[in-house]
Amino acid sequence: MKSLLRTFVSVAILLGVWQLVYIVGIVPEKYFPSVLSLLAAFWQMLMSGELAKGELMTFSRAALGLSAASLLGVTLAILADLYPVFGRGFRYISDVLQPIPPAAVVPMAVFSLGLGIKLYAFVIILVTVWPAYMNGVAALSSVSPVQLAAGRSLGCSRLELLRHIKLPAAMPEIFTGIRYAATIALIAVIVSEMLAGRDGLGFMIFKKAFANRTPEVFALMFVVAINGVALNALVNGLRWLVTGWHIRMMERTE
């Protein structure tokens, strides 16, 4: 409930800043419409039902893609931790792939992957897998040696060490990675939708822009932004479940 309130406050802050910029009038109204016309555009899209349809597509794609990519990233990080040779080798691949901008590779990927589900999977995994993987590797390798020694002296095997000591200790940092991944997963979905052009918020933004409907475009941008919060709430909820002890331990009194 509290987080819902905070989201509401945040939206209000952003809309307020927007309206302020509008009132100051640096940019002509035609290109920077008032909050009122954004709301009108939002209402119209809501009533016609197109917004709900686009929203459902985009959010489910982002959530699904993020889950798959995060699982993959953590799995790879665990593999890299268990098998250092794989870790070193995969590091070369990740170093090579990570700097590639999706905007550069996506239009070329369309030739091989088409405009369907394969394209989405490729783009989302390509960009979203790294934060979970990188934070995972970093966190797994920096688990305190004291903890590990304690585990070993209790007779833990390598796998048990991983399961009971390393992973729990690494979870907070992994989730920070996933949280970052959540935002870029959404970006990846929007960019793909702009390109694949069938449905979703990204497609709607592109279609409205080409119809010269500025208020609709910006209203949709706000909707995308709110999706960011929703996706993060999902990640934070999961994080609380998985790493609750860490947060509780770290809770400080100001």
């Binding site: 945040s10 939206v11 952003l14 905007a103 935002t183 959404l186 970006i187 929007i190 960019v191 990204g202 941008m221 995308v224 932004a225 709110i226 999706n227 960011g228 919060v229 996706l231 993060n232």
Partner: peptide, 8 residues
């Protein structure tokens, strides 16, 4: 979170 999610 909101500002972070806006695609380039």
């Amino acid at each position: 979170d909101m500002l972070a999610t806006l695609p380039p």
